[in-house]
Design a protein around this nucleic acid. Structure first.
Lengths: 200, 200
DNA sequence: GTCTATAGAAAGATAGAC
DNA sequence: GTCTATCTTTCTATAGAC
């Protein structure tokens, strides 16, 4: 790649990184192109050399955020299924994730924000969600046919837990919520291992 | 109440109803005062005779939405604990709720939207969340000490399920997600009834 | 209390210099 | 490719007539 193109690619990545951070933190509407570009070390005029519109950037940012999130990193590590699930639960439902210390999961940080838009961003979100469900499903024990069901419900609880925690105004409630979701998540995984039979 | 004040109260309620509907549908930033007032049958100039600012209306709308939601209505009906829980799960995680056919639950529709703001709106959201958790907790069997834990996790799953469903672009995925959350919710309630003992 | 009109600010997108 | 400057639209909030 020639030097000029290499520089362009670097700028583009900087914009995307700023976008992931700022969109997650404030939502689509509360981030101006000027904010994004300033965070990327440029001025607002240069934006359109990289992206056709703010919405287009949003779509790309959602997809990239998923690839950069702690969840994705976990999928690369060599771990047993149990370990991976347990790390996923603990890491996702952690206060540091809620406070966006780690690269955030767009599913939780942008859920209702994306519901308010149309078109490509929602398709991107849907793909990211499907991937999370599939990842969780693969780690679950497969003694019965409810793996996908458990994976879906577990995903909803994790995403909901973090999304709600971010909206709450009270630190104690946040900790209790995260803790409850972690513990219940473990139980859901254990129950998924049992074959389904009527209770004694 | 004199007639004039009575009329004012009626207008105020119309604005609040429009606010609940439109904020839930589009989020805070994508609703203009003009939209709200038009939906309420007035023009934008009259808004400030009723509310000091758009944010103030948002706070009031969140609280009122909780009181008007299907969840609140359920708490008034005379039902057994099991029936109430089962109706709550089924009604909340229903496609008609996701599509906002019923009065929507602000916890699910506004979660990340509210996380992006500060101050009073988040306090209102926190209160509404606490009330949902308390309502669910009261219906759960109390054989062990995990009622609050289950109530928190169940709330997170319900809210997350609806919030994610709203963002998804694919009807089949939405139905599967809602179905999985309903079924898993029932299991969580059943497990909560068991005393906690090591599995055989 | 509700209307029309408007002030004032912000933001998305474009133009043109370098 | 990035800059500054600007066009244009949109929106919150206010002013003043009725």
């Amino acid at each position: 790649m020639p030097w000029s193109s290499e520089q362009k690619e670097k700028s583009r990545e900087k914009i995307l990184d700023s976008a992931i951070d700022l969109f997650s933190r404030r939502g689509f509407d509360n981030v101006a192109i000027g904010d994004l570009m300033q965070a990327a070390g440029m001025t607002h005029g240069g934006f359109y050399a990289h992206f056709g519109s703010k919405s287009e950037l949003y779509r790309e940012a959602v997809t990239l955020a998923a690839r950069k999130s702690a969840v994705a990193k976990l999928s690369a590590e060599t771990l047993s299924a149990e370990e991976r699930l347990s790390k996923l639960l603990a890491g996702y439902l952690d206060i540091s994730h809620v406070q966006q210390a780690n690269p955030p999961c767009p599913l939780a940080f942008l859920a209702t924000d994306i519901a308010n838009r149309d078109g490509d961003v929602r398709t991107a979100y849907t793909q990211v969600f499907r991937r999370l469900v599939a990842l969780i499903g693969r780690q679950l024990p497969n003694e019965n046919g409810s793996r996908r069901e458990t994976a879906l419900a577990l995903s909803a609880m994790m995403i909901g837990g973090v999304a709600v925690a971010r909206a709450l105004n009270d630190d104690r409630s946040v900790e209790q919520l995260l803790d409850a979701c972690r513990k219940t998540g473990v139980q859901m995984i254990e129950n998924s291992a049992d074959t389904k039979k009527p209770r004694p």
